[in-house]
Structures are given as structure tokens and as C-alpha cells.
Amino acid sequence: MLIDHPLLGPRDASEFIYMGDAKLLNRPNWKSQNSKTKFLDYGYLRKNPAGVHKELWYHEQGDRSWLLVTRNTVTHEILKVELARDTKGK
């Protein structure tokens, strides 16, 4: 597969590392109520939809950016690729 890196253009998947559901971007506040439960959800409950999925890819053999990739897990079509640091908080 190819990932269309927002800065570098289409690059082969072999340059990337996959880290799954982009939910990992939203780390709970450690001071919040029920923080333990929230962290358990954060760590263990991942989405695995058949369809459009937001996921994290790391361009380890490239510019070392973490990317937020919107991908259809059924057709494998990649709909959007963003730098994770730009999307933080969205």
C-alpha cells in the first residue's frame, strides 16, 4: 500500500509503522475523575470498524512524522492523511 504523506507525497508502506486506532491521541487527564477507568479505556478499548477508520502511522524510515490516516478498512482506500501534530485536539 501507499500512504500519501502530506509533506513528501506517496510513500511505500514499508517505510511506516502502524499503531492502530487514532484514539491514542486523546490521552485522558490524569487528574480527572475516574482517571483509572478512563486510562483503561484509553489503553485497551480500540475501535476496529469495517469501514472508515482513523489510525496512526509512523514514518519511521522517512521523516519520523506521526500521521493521522483516515482509511476505509473494507476497500483499503486512504481518504485523508494529516500530520498528527496538526490535528491534535481536533
Binding site: 491514542l24 509512523y58 519511521e60 501534530r85
Partner: peptide, 17 residues
């Protein structure tokens, strides 16, 4: 070594940008 760097980059770019 490579895994720690990967995770530190995750923290740097994704958690504490």
C-alpha cells in the same frame, strides 16, 4: 532503542506537541 525513540516521538508529536 528504536522502540523507545518511536514512543518518545509519539509523545513529542501526538501528546505534547
Amino acid at each position: 532503542a528504536p522502540l523507545v525513540l518511536r514512543n518518545l516521538e509519539f509523545v513529542r508529536q501526538c501528546l505534547l506537541p
